[in-house]
């Protein structure tokens, strides 16, 4: 492995070179911070997935089949959207940092809010009208 002191000699893995073209290296601390933010979104997405599974697995004697399937489907879909959105956000932030551009708005943030509100709303209605 050659010395990594000279920026021109730095070896980049072909995949990350392909998805992150041009611009200049951001501060490595920001790159790591962006990675942690991505992981926080992934954990949020996993929480939605786990919630969807839990609804389907544990509420058999509380909710009827249609409501159970609807809630589980909404939560699983949200988890998938968040997970895919997390990658695009990571990519967008990394690209903005390379080009010293303003960071993109997090579109997945309102997605969590709206999705969470829909799921909670359905639960409230179901519990109250039971």
């Amino acid at each position: 492995m050659s010395s990594a002191e000279d920026p021109a000699e730095r070896r980049r893995s072909s995949f990350s070179e392909r998805v992150l073209k041009g611009g200049s290296e951001p501060d490595p601390r920001f790159t790591l911070a962006n990675e942690r933010t991505f992981l926080a979104w992934i954990r949020t997405s996993l929480a939605f997935l786990a919630g969807g599974i839990a609804i389907e697995a544990f509420t058999g004697d509380i909710f009827d089949l249609a409501i159970r399937k609807f809630l589980a489907t909404v939560l699983l879909l949200l988890g998938m959207l968040l997970s895919a959105g997390a990658t695009f956000r990571w990519l967008g932030v990394e690209r903005s940092m390379r080009h010293k551009a303003p960071l993109p708005l997090p579109i997945i943030a309102p997605l969590v809010a709206v999705g969470g509100a829909i799921a909670s709303g359905v639960l409230v209605v179901v519990v109250l009208t039971r």
């Binding site: 990594a4 990350s16 992934i42 997935l49 988890g79 990658t87 990571w90």
Partner: peptide, 20 residues
């Protein structure tokens, strides 16, 4: 200099989408 770990990011989120 830290190379952004695009492979780990894409693999992780693909796995979560596949789980979904």
């Amino acid at each position: 200099h830290v190379e952004p770990d695009a492979v780990a990011v894409v693999v992780t989120s693909t796995a979560v989408v596949a789980l979904g």
